[in-house]
Design a binder for these strands. Sequence first.
DNA 1: ATGGCGGCACAATGCCGA
Length: 263
Amino acid sequence: MKIATWNVNSLKVRLPQVLQWLNDNPIDVLCLQETKMTDDKFPAAEIIAAGYHVVFTGQKTYNGVAIISRHPITDVVKNNPHFADEHQRLIAGTIAGMRIICAYIPNGQSLESDKYQYKLRWLDGLHHWLTLELLQHEKLALLGDYNIAPEDRDVHDPVAWEGQVLVSAPERAAFVKMQELKLIDAFRLFEQAEKLFSWWDYRQMGFRLNRGLRIDHILLTPALAAVCTGCVIDKIPRKWEQPSDHTPVIATLDLPVLPPLPA
DNA sequence: ATGGCGGCACAATGCCGA
């Protein structure tokens, strides 16, 4: 069982890459962020034709999330029931006995911005909802673009980034607060090389110079962490023509995989 | 100090992302 997250920065542009990547990789569940399209424009038919189930909630220009799955998706929730939000940033579903939550956490823009206050409120609302979801679901995974680099080792140049949005103390505290719910960063369950990131700026050869951040994460409850056998960042799609600025993160879970439903 | 790149829109410049 492999679950993954990828901020695609426009699914309209990146759909061929998503289908190519799913074809190249045995992925059971893929959470997408920044689809940037309303539901009437969502390419559900193409994804279903490729053999997947899909649920989504989107809006024009910004935000938008989706879950693509080889297995049926039930009990779908769009947005946080306990946080009024204009943005489409959250979708959850139950897949193969796991609660899968796909999140596009706000960027925050800068510490002086109203968007930063919104980010912190949004994280508070997420925490509240997570506490309730965790009461009901022993096997839960929160996958997405967190827009938080949890530690200095997740930042290419911690000195240059010190105190900036994505690494500021309040944002990191919100991440720690999720860890205090016993949600475990799958990536850090394993020994990893230095300087592994999931996002690189398009500008100034960010990717080639490996000036990146690790801001896309897969958090697991203890029941899933106990069966997690690996977590990797797949840099390959970042090397493709016209890439997203993010690249996928994949966690492998030693769980029985249901056979796919007949088409 | 600014913009760099890329995607998008009541587009032809301005916004947002991270």
